[in-house]
């Protein structure tokens, strides 16, 4: 597929204009507010596992419930945390999508329809 077709679909000025609209900028801010804390928490929680396992193996080996040790329970909790984050994230992504559609519709309109 030749790329020239795509390039002509929206001009340089067109991209810059969309990037500057309040709708687009608002969307970016909302996303950042949601994503950055979640992302950081996720990283810290995950890397705590190899760090604790490497630096405090004996503490992690303490049995805490049903014969399982801290290390195993913490590893299982990674799955639960990842599921919860993914679920929340996918829900939020649905909302972002609707705002994206508005921006796309607006862009089409200002280009005089497709």
């Amino acid at each position: 597929m030749p790329e020239e077709i795509i390039a002509s679909q929206e001009t340089r000025a067109g991209w810059d204009r969309i990037a500057a609209t309040p709708e687009f900028r608002g969307l970016m801010t909302t996303k950042k507010v949601f994503i950055i804390p979640v992302f950081l928490f996720f990283l810290v929680y995950y890397f705590a596992l190899p760090l604790l396992v490497g630096l405090a193996p004996h503490w992690m080996s303490t049995k805490i419930m049903g014969g399982a040790n801290r290390a195993y329970v913490f590893a299982l909790s990674q799955f639960v945390v990842a599921w919860v984050i993914a679920w929340r994230y996918l829900k939020a992504a649905g909302k972002f999508d609707r705002r994206v559609q508005e921006i796309v519709a607006q862009a089409d309109e200002s280009r005089g329809g497709k």
Partner: peptide
């Protein structure tokens, strides 16, 4: 034993991390 289990744990967390990003936007 346990050290081996860190492979699937990391694999799953990584999967969620990558997928959440690419179906949702953001990164």
């Amino acid at each position: 034993g346990y050290d081996g289990f860190l492979f699937p744990v990391g694999g799953f967390v990584a999967y969620v991390f990558a997928r959440a990003n690419d179906t949702g936007e953001a990164v």
